[in-house]
Simulated scan of single mutants.
Amino acid sequence: MNFNLKEIITAFMVLFAVIDIIGNIPIIIDLRRKSGHIQSEKASIIAGFIMILFLFVGQSLLHFIGIDVHSFAVAGALILFFIALEMILGITLYKDDASSSAVTATVFPLAFPLIAGPGSLTTLLSLRAEFAIQNIIVAVVLNMIVLYIVLKTSSKIEKLIGPTGIQIIRKVFGVILLAISVKLFAANIKMLF
């Protein structure tokens, strides 16, 4: 197994931008208020498990329904493009606003679909078209560690960064994600023709 630091860093940054854990701090704080408590460890482990499972099973699932990885990567690039537009322009194209209770807030909507949602799952398969699987797994684990830290310290981070800081971070990661989506689209659209 050869680990490639460049692939790990790129995959980490892409997933970090898609998961948008910093931008989701207001949602996390709202969930804490509604449910009283969020189990940071459980949410991180469940989200990481879903993502790694989909990384392995997702490709087989695609083959089963007759879609190749490059087609899925192009579709994933388009989804990343729209997520990036949401982040940059501050608009909401799609947001699932499910109410939560103390029992379910950790798993739903936090671990799934907020963290391991359509965007991150599509991104995993898109990344798989370009990067080695072990590098993607390391990137997922690193993101889950960051997720755990952010969940544990979300109220302190909100006070430290402030609403303006969170908006700036979202826009910066939005631009990075937009550039990555264009690159992913260009690299995979060639394979289809």
Score class of each variant (00 low, 15 high):
residue 2 N to G: 14
residue 106 T to S: 08
residue 192 L to E: 03
residue 16 F to V: 09
residue 101 S to N: 08
residue 39 Q to A: 11
residue 49 F to E: 02
residue 52 I to V: 05
residue 13 M to K: 06
residue 47 A to Y: 10
residue 132 A to R: 02
residue 55 L to D: 07
residue 50 I to A: 01
residue 18 V to N: 06
residue 75 A to D: 00
residue 117 G to L: 04
residue 52 I to F: 04
residue 61 L to V: 11
residue 86 E to M: 02
residue 133 I to W: 00
residue 74 V to M: 00
residue 84 A to S: 03
residue 18 V to G: 10
residue 31 L to I: 04
residue 30 D to M: 15
residue 15 L to C: 08
residue 151 L to P: 14
residue 126 S to Q: 04
residue 111 A to T: 12
residue 152 K to A: 14
residue 168 I to F: 05
residue 10 T to S: 10
residue 103 V to D: 15
residue 36 G to A: 09
residue 172 V to E: 14
residue 143 N to D: 09
residue 42 K to F: 11
residue 29 I to A: 12
residue 121 L to P: 04
residue 176 I to G: 06
residue 185 F to R: 03
residue 123 T to W: 07
residue 180 I to M: 15
residue 50 I to R: 02
residue 118 P to M: 00
residue 115 I to W: 12
residue 146 V to H: 11
residue 135 N to V: 11
residue 144 M to H: 11
residue 93 L to M: 09
residue 100 S to N: 13
residue 1 M to E: 14
residue 176 I to A: 15
residue 173 F to G: 07
residue 30 D to E: 15
residue 147 L to F: 14
residue 160 L to W: 14
residue 108 F to C: 12
residue 161 I to C: 05
residue 45 I to L: 03
residue 68 D to Y: 04
residue 78 L to W: 02
residue 134 Q to Y: 11
residue 66 G to V: 03
residue 4 N to T: 03
residue 78 L to R: 00
residue 178 L to D: 08
residue 65 I to Y: 01
residue 54 F to Q: 00
residue 66 G to Y: 01
residue 65 I to R: 05
residue 59 Q to C: 07
residue 60 S to L: 05
residue 161 I to A: 09
residue 173 F to W: 06
residue 189 I to Q: 02
residue 51 M to N: 12
residue 51 M to E: 14
residue 149 I to Y: 15
residue 49 F to W: 12
residue 13 M to G: 04
residue 57 V to K: 11
residue 175 V to H: 06
residue 167 Q to L: 12
residue 150 V to K: 11
residue 143 N to H: 14
residue 69 V to A: 08
residue 178 L to T: 01
residue 62 L to K: 04
residue 56 F to W: 02
residue 16 F to A: 03
residue 92 T to H: 14
residue 187 A to T: 09
residue 26 P to W: 05
residue 38 I to M: 02
residue 2 N to F: 11
residue 22 I to G: 10
residue 174 G to N: 04
residue 135 N to A: 00
residue 111 A to W: 15
residue 166 I to T: 09
residue 13 M to Q: 10
residue 93 L to Q: 08
residue 152 K to T: 14
residue 71 S to H: 00
residue 124 L to H: 00
residue 80 L to F: 08
residue 15 L to S: 06
residue 130 E to N: 15
residue 132 A to T: 07
residue 65 I to F: 03
residue 25 I to H: 03
residue 56 F to G: 07
residue 146 V to C: 10
residue 154 S to Y: 12
residue 35 S to Y: 10
residue 113 P to A: 00
residue 137 I to L: 13
residue 147 L to T: 14
residue 122 T to P: 00
residue 17 A to V: 10
residue 161 I to H: 05
residue 79 I to V: 02
residue 28 I to M: 13
residue 23 G to Y: 04
residue 160 L to E: 09
residue 90 G to V: 11
residue 83 I to N: 03
residue 17 A to N: 13
residue 21 I to C: 08
